[in-house]
């Protein structure tokens, strides 16, 4: 877990919890990441914003080791992930992830989903894991009645909650959120934002969120970074986002069709 000092100051001289350096990834001829650099301090909550299809998800997949970057390095606690399978597996045990559509396992009930990491990765006995799962579910506002339901019977908001419960059940040091509010109504989105903030604070976890929902970003972030054309074009404290002085950021947060991002959108549509 984080020391109080490092939790306070993510930009300190300490080694960053997560460091992405010079990350490049191309699919066929299409360059998605082009020398992306991002560091996240222990206990810090960073939100990466950007338009659809600029490489936010690819960045997350490289961090998870689901995609192998063409160049650059991904380190967690100073350990290079691509070095070995054991390094990757060790890093994975520190990470919890909330997927965009929650990615709950259809064949398992809600509590089995939440307890999956505890049972499979930690080898916890079923009875104990169930208790802990129901406890975690209560933390995200799911009552014990829904424990035995299957994911197909849940509403979008409940699925997100269950996904969040699964991500935090193993008390990870790092939590990743992939578009946590996409597809939810504004009120439910705010509820999920609040849950994300409380859960990350309670765990003292380092959080990395990718989103294009600015309300969500403002609420969750200590620091916001904007990704465009495969690289970070601006980053700074969440409070400074409105006075960034960066044309990309201003266009994005005001949701204007005109501006420097115009061309890329046209490209993406054509591709």
């Amino acid at each position: 877990m984080s020391t109080p000092e490092s939790a306070h100051n993510g930009h300190g001289t300490n080694e960053p919890k997560i460091a992405l350096r010079g990350l490049c990834k191309a699919f066929g001829g299409a360059v998605v990441l082009d020398g992306l650099d991002l560091e996240i301090g222990t206990g810090e909550s960073v939100v990466v914003i950007g338009c659809s299809g600029v490489g936010k998800s690819v960045m997350l997949k490289c961090l998870l080791g689901l995609l192998r970057p063409d160049a650059g390095s991904v380190t967690i606690d100073g350990e290079e992930l691509s070095r070995s399978r054991t390094a990757r597996e060790a890093a994975m045990r520190k990470i919890g992830m909330l997927f965009q559509n929650a990615a709950l396992f259809d064949s398992l009930s809600v509590w089995e989903n939440v307890a999956f990491g505890l049972i499979q990765a930690r080898g916890m006995p079923h009875r104990q894991a169930r208790g802990l799962a129901i406890e975690t579910m209560a933390q995200v506002g799911l009552d014990a009645d829904s424990a035995d339901l299957y994911p197909a019977a849940l509403s979008g908001g409940m699925r997100k909650r269950a996904g969040l419960a699964r991500a935090i059940a193993t008390k990870p040091e790092i939590i990743l959120f992939d578009e946590p509010t996409t597809g939810l109504d504004p009120i439910m989105a705010d509820v999920i934002n609040d849950l994300i903030v409380t859960c990350t604070h309670e765990l003292g976890a380092t959080a990395l969120t990718i989103t294009h929902d600015m309300r969500s970003a403002r609420k969750i972030a200590d620091r916001i970074a904007m990704i465009h054309d495969g690289a970070i074009v601006w980053q700074g404290p969440a409070a400074e986002i409105d006075s960034s002085g960066n044309a990309h950021v201003e266009q994005f947060i005001n949701g204007r069709a005109e501006g420097p991002i115009q061309l890329a959108v046209a490209h993406a549509a054509a591709g």
Binding site: R93, Q120, A121
Partner: peptide, 22 residues
């Protein structure tokens, strides 16, 4: 296939479970 396109296989990996084995 459905597990793949709904990211459930990726979720297995993030929960420290090898999808090949599981």
């Amino acid at each position: 296939g459905t597990m793949r396109v709904t990211e459930q296989i990726d979720a297995l990996t993030t929960l420290s479970t090898n999808p090949h084995k599981y």
